[in-house]
Design a protein around this nucleic acid. Structure first.
Length: 258
DNA sequence: ATGTCTCAGGGACTGAGA
């Protein structure tokens, strides 16, 4: 089965691209972030017509996440259990796979703005709560995949200019330590299980002709629980949608499980 | 290079967030 994650930076604007991508790629599951719309505005009819179910948790202007699946999702849950958060950043659902039920967790992790911002403190608290909560989720759902926009570049090789970014937001040591804490739950980074081109990124700033010059970061990830390790057959970044007119600033990340 | 894109409020542009 094919699973993917894509920060679309407004589903209203990006809907035609999402529908095209679904038609071309036919993923079994697509996790979306930054819908930037309330649930009442979600384009359910178009998604249904494309052959997909949708579990959604939307919000006006900011945030908002969804899981689109070809098979009906079950046990849909919103947010991090035990963590009060008015921002709609996380949704979970289960789908059947040929190797057993798969638990999908779709996350839009906080950006943090800058390391001296109170949004940075919120980011670190959010990541801590996620890690605590996931420990229990992994017991309930051993075959669990955590996909989304992590807003963390885990290593220097995930950054176009590591020296310029050192200690900055998306790259700071506390953020990288939080990412490592996720790995210590038994997760592995699907992308790094395979040989990849150098300077592989998933996000490029709209400014400075960032995409054309490949001034990017790899901040969108697919983490696989230990029970899924042997099931992952490939993982790659699809840069094609980033080349379109009016693109999202992120590209989809895709993994194949069997 | 405070550089681009998106949204809301209000009804043209500005500010916030990324």
């Amino acid at each position: 089965m094919k699973i993917a994650t894509w920060n679309v930076n407004s589903l209203k604007v990006r809907l035609p691209q999402v529908l095209d991508w679904l038609a071309q790629q036919r993923p079994d599951a697509l996790c979306l972030q930054e819908l930037k719309q309330e649930d009442s505005a979600f384009p359910m009819a178009a998604i249904t017509a494309a052959g997909y179910h949708a579990a959604i948790s939307g919000q006006k202007t900011y945030n908002g996440v969804a899981i689109l699946t070809r098979n009906e999702p079950t046990a849909i849950e919103r947010g991090i259990g035990g963590f009060e958060d008015e921002q709609r950043r996380l949704i979970s659902a289960s789908v059947d796979a040929n190797f057993g039920a798969l638990r999908i967790v779709c996350a839009y992790m906080p950006n943090g703005q800058s390391i001296d911002s109170d949004k940075y403190q919120y980011k670190l608290r959010w990541l801590q709560a996620l890690t605590v909560w996931l420990r229990g989720e992994l017991e309930k759902y051993p075959r669990l995949v955590l996909l989304g926009d992590y807003n963390i570049a885990p290593e220097d090789r995930d950054v176009h200019d590591p020296e310029a970014w050192r200690g900055q937001i998306l790259c700071s040591e506390p953020e990288r330590a939080a990412f490592k804490s996720l790995l210590e739950l038994g997760f592995s980074d699907a992308f790094r299980r395979f040989e990849q081109p150098e300077k592989s990124f998933s996000w490029w700033d709209y400014r400075m002709q960032g995409f054309r010059r490949n001034l990017g970061l790899r901040i969108d990830h697919i983490l696989l629980s230990q029970a899924l390790d042997g099931h992952c057959k490939s993982c790659s970044i699809d840069k094609a949608p980033r080349k379109l007119e009016r693109p999202s600033d992120h590209a989809p990340v895709v993994a194949e499980l069997a």
